[in-house]
Simulated assay, not measured.
Amino acid sequence: MPRKSASVRREEILAATVEEIESTGLRTLRVADVAQRLGLSPSLVIYHFVTKEALVAAAFAHAGENDLYRARRLAATRKPAAQRLRDVVQWYMPSGSTRSWKIWIDGWSAGLFDDGVKSTFSSLDREWKTILSELIVAGLEAKEFRFSHAREATEASANGPTGATVSEMADDCATRILAYLDGLAVQLIFNPESVTPATLANWVDAFVARELD
């Protein structure tokens, strides 16, 4: 049997690390447990990633990029911008997909004390905001959204409406939407008896509608 390339082996290790974090949590994660999932030696895992901290940061980046890949595909369809935005938001939500929010909540906590993880999460967050912001701008240009607060801001400008101003407003809107989704995800996981997936979906639809009106 031919030996696997370094890139393939790294992908396998990253996937196994994500599975281990999802199964047992980041606090008790051991390189040996990741290695055992693949039938490898811990030294081989360290050979590819040098430290456990580097492995964890790379694993979160791997999981995040997989989610972003799907989001970009949803955003690139030929549907109206409003529907594409809704599809992306539904994908981000902690329901209706196979994504596990446990690992992200675990990662947020780790990012408070690990600069590598914090940097990874900051980069992923910027990517998500870019996707949402571009869809919001596309919806404005197609007159699918009113976005009255943005229009009022540009009309008040001495220079009149500018793409940069609208873009900045769209970025702010994307930030608020993601912050709202993140907070609801925490509630859904820790208080499932009071925040069901159906309730969350209704709240999100109403919140996004108000943001874009």
Rank of each mutant, 00 (worst) to 15 (best):
A81L: 04
G96Q: 02
T199E: 14
G139K: 05
R151N: 14
L44Q: 10
A164R: 11
M1R: 07
F207D: 03
S5M: 05
D33Y: 03
L112I: 09
R78Y: 08
V137E: 08
R78D: 14
S23M: 13
A174H: 00
F121K: 01
A142F: 03
P197N: 11
G183Q: 10
T154G: 11
F121C: 02
E155A: 13
W203P: 03
R37N: 08
A153V: 12
F147G: 02
R72H: 08
A179H: 15
T77L: 05
M169N: 02
L181V: 09
L38Y: 06
R72C: 08
T98L: 11
L188A: 13
E193C: 04
I46R: 05
E144F: 02
Y92N: 05
A158D: 10
R126L: 09
G139S: 13
D115L: 15
T77E: 13
F121A: 03
R73G: 10
A150I: 09
H48E: 07
F147Y: 11
D115N: 14
G160N: 09
F113L: 12
E127C: 04
A35S: 06
S109N: 15
D172P: 01
V204G: 04
G163V: 09
T98K: 12
R37Y: 05
E155T: 10
L178T: 09
A76P: 09
N191K: 11
T77Y: 10
A138D: 09
V89S: 02
I177Y: 01
A150C: 12
P94G: 01
I189V: 08
L26V: 07
V18F: 00
S194V: 12
L26R: 01
V8D: 00
A209F: 03
I46S: 11
G25I: 04
V34G: 00
G116D: 11
Q83T: 07
S148F: 05
A63W: 00
E134T: 09
L74A: 09
M93E: 13
P2A: 04
F60D: 02
R84V: 00
T196W: 03
D115V: 12
W101K: 05
S23Y: 14
S157H: 11
G64N: 03
R30F: 05
L181H: 02
I105M: 12
R151C: 12
P161D: 14
L44R: 08
T28C: 14
V18C: 04
R37L: 04
A58T: 04
A32N: 09
D33R: 08
A206C: 07
Y69W: 11
V117K: 01
A206K: 15
L112M: 15
R210Y: 06
T77R: 14
Q83K: 06
E134P: 01
A59C: 07
K102F: 13
R176N: 15
A138R: 02
F145S: 00
K102R: 15
V88T: 05
T196S: 14
E211W: 00
V186G: 05
T162F: 04
R84C: 03
E22N: 10
N159L: 13
T98M: 11
T199W: 14
W91G: 07
K79V: 08
G96P: 00
